[in-house]
Design a protein around this nucleic acid. Sequence first.
DNA 1: GTCTATAAGCGGATAGAC
DNA 2: GTCTATCCGCTTATAGAC
Lengths: 240, 240
Amino acid sequence: MIMGMDNRPPPQSSAVPTLGAAAAHQPPPGHHLAPGRRGRARSEAEILVVAEEVFATYGLHGATMAKIAERVGIPKANIHYYFSTKEALYLRILKDILEEWLSAATFDLRDSPRAALEAYIRAKLHYSRVRPQASKVWANEILNGAPLIREHLEERLLAWVDTKAAIIQGWIDRGELAPVDPRHLLFSIWATTQHYSDFATQITILLRKEALEAADFEQAAQVLTQMVLGGLVKSPKTLS
Amino acid sequence: MIMGMDNRPPPQSSAVPTLGAAAAHQPPPGHHLAPGRRGRARSEAEILVVAEEVFATYGLHGATMAKIAERVGIPKANIHYYFSTKEALYLRILKDILEEWLSAATFDLRDSPRAALEAYIRAKLHYSRVRPQASKVWANEILNGAPLIREHLEERLLAWVDTKAAIIQGWIDRGELAPVDPRHLLFSIWATTQHYSDFATQITILLRKEALEAADFEQAAQVLTQMVLGGLVKSPKTLS
DNA sequence: GTCTATAAGCGGATAGAC
DNA sequence: GTCTATCCGCTTATAGAC
């Protein structure tokens, strides 16, 4: 169970409206949940947390409403009361994930690329660590050709990437970053950081571990920052 | 019920060196396929090619034998003649993919890390370009916790990584490579290169393209080699 | 809001003719 | 080797009592 975790990455303390599935739909102020009862907000949040895990493990088609219901501890008909269809539940998870990720990139043109990119890499790695299931659901959807999230991707993510790519291009124009395609740089950061959630099973086996620990993520951060900063960012000393 | 089920054909069982799905099972010399008929080798190869596409698009559970059969143009019962179960067909694809990838890393300790790593990055990118569906099937399986390929992973891939990591460590010991964890370096190369097949849908949308072209892969190669070589490999030249 | 029961359809696998 | 027909379990979604 992941309830009550802190999803915020270390560098920033961004007050983001959309939190993870676990924190979805804050109950209104003054609202209390009786110990034995669930209530709308709590049931919905519990379903989302469990569904995230089940979708990640079995995929959209392999996941069943019965399995989700069983793990939540309710009859499967109840899920249909909160989410009209299986796909609606699935889509809700995808959109939540995306908002969380977008909030991880706080950098703008005033920042130095060195500090900004390292913070972004570490923030994304942090999400891979604390919310790996969400990342897997996303990956599964994209892998299959984004049949359900495509439209949202073309609107929300595309616009976001345009603004961030412009910032990166600004750094290049200022001579603080090697002339690389900004979008491909973003892709590389996503690919490497999300790899530590999406391919965690493979990594765990190849590192002969039971599960990935903080130290493994720190090693990942070392390699990734060394690659990105060492390979692309011009050191402050050489600036003139 | 899961492992050990390969092909059940009555007469000849095949312990053939695994090739790509497209090239699976070359007919023996002198063997001719009548234009209208298929023959064992051709049917099996056709099934594998189509199944790769269907598994990549729908996932293990979303893919159906009926859908594969329909695209091949045969009744679904015929597939069961060549592959005892759906899982056997799926596993065959996974093992084929892995062997192809492993063959892409030709480097050894005598090579320079610069030439070896660039060649490896470009070879992996090449596979992402020419065989993206295979990569997606693999990613899907790992994402879901490697329920079927786990054992194979623990044997075949783990041993392979050990030998390759030793070579990379050798470069570090010789002072030709920055002191990074060799396994995490491999993970980064896999993550970034496979991203261009696994997340091709997302990349295509964000680049406002219809499909990824050779030029996109070349740009990817530029960014990746600049990151890996510029950030980790010690050499006379660094930033250009 | 929560539950039981069930409708309606799909999917993997097999039998057995040719 | 290829095909048609079919069994049987599982899945989503709904109906309707409480």
